[in-house]
């Protein structure tokens, strides 16, 4: 039985629903915040995910980051190398990445490339499992980003694509479960590699 720990960076434009998603995930769908309350800096959400049929688990330390530019500097410090800002957040490099956009906002989708670059800049060649999340799938009449388009771009970036609605409790766990699984797979791969070395 092993418990892995992964630092999950959650990014995307302001008000796409990052906090809503991470809170839904944390509370198993019990808590949807209807009124927008902007995240300033980074909020930490910790939750353990069991890996099916293994007895193993991955503890996700989700860094729910502010989407608004004003906080970018502060966020970047926390994503990167052990930071001086706050001891609680002193955990080094990102392990996995979750980029979120709002399917009813093409602008938020276009920003994803930028968010991806920003986080990857902190990874120094480290392989970083990632997912792209199209949130607010309940707003179907206002949809601006087609699923096929998002999927195609995600694939080109090596990300797995998920659509969610934090409001309707649709699929909110899936992106996090898939990140945990990807990190777990990476761990098993590494053990295999290391066993061949000595």
């Amino acid at each position: 039985m092993v418990k892995l720990r992964a630092k999950c960076i959650l990014v995307g434009d302001a008000s796409v629903g990052k906090s809503a998603l991470s809170q839904m995930f944390r509370s198993d769908g019990a808590h949807f915040q209807k009124n927008y309350s902007m995240t300033a800096g980074v909020e930490l959400v910790v939750k353990s995910v069991s890996i099916p049929d293994s007895g193993d688990s991955v503890e996700l330390f989700i860094f729910d980051s502010a989407g608004k530019d004003t906080f970018l500097d502060a966020c970047e410090k926390l994503w990167g190398q052990p930071s001086v800002l706050c001891v609680v957040f002193d955990w080094g490099q990102p392990s996995v990445l979750c980029v979120v956009f709002d399917v009813s906002s093409e602008v938020s989708f276009r920003s994803c490339a930028l968010w991806l670059d920003r986080v990857r800049a902190h990874c120094q060649g480290l392989q970083l499992p990632g997912v792209l999340v199209g949130n607010k799938s309940d707003l179907s009449s206002r949809r601006e980003v087609e699923m096929a388009m998002a999927q195609e771009w995600a694939q080109s970036q090596g990300l797995e694509y998920h659509e969610t609605s934090a409001k309707e409790m649709e699929n909110c766990e899936a992106p996090f479960l898939s990140l945990a699984q990807a990190f777990y797979t990476l761990y098993q791969d590494r053990i295999q590699t290391i066993q061949t070395l000595a």
């Binding site: 039985m1 092993v2 991955v58 000595a198």
Partner: peptide, 27 residues
């Protein structure tokens, strides 16, 4: 951190084939 299959005792057993592996995040 520790995986019971790769315990920290492996570090000092005099054998470089056995090892301890970290289970995520630094330090």
């Amino acid at each position: 951190s520790s995986d019971e299959n790769y315990p920290p005792e492996n570090i000092i057993d005099g054998n470089t084939e056995s090892f301890w592996i970290s289970t995520g995040m630094f330090p």
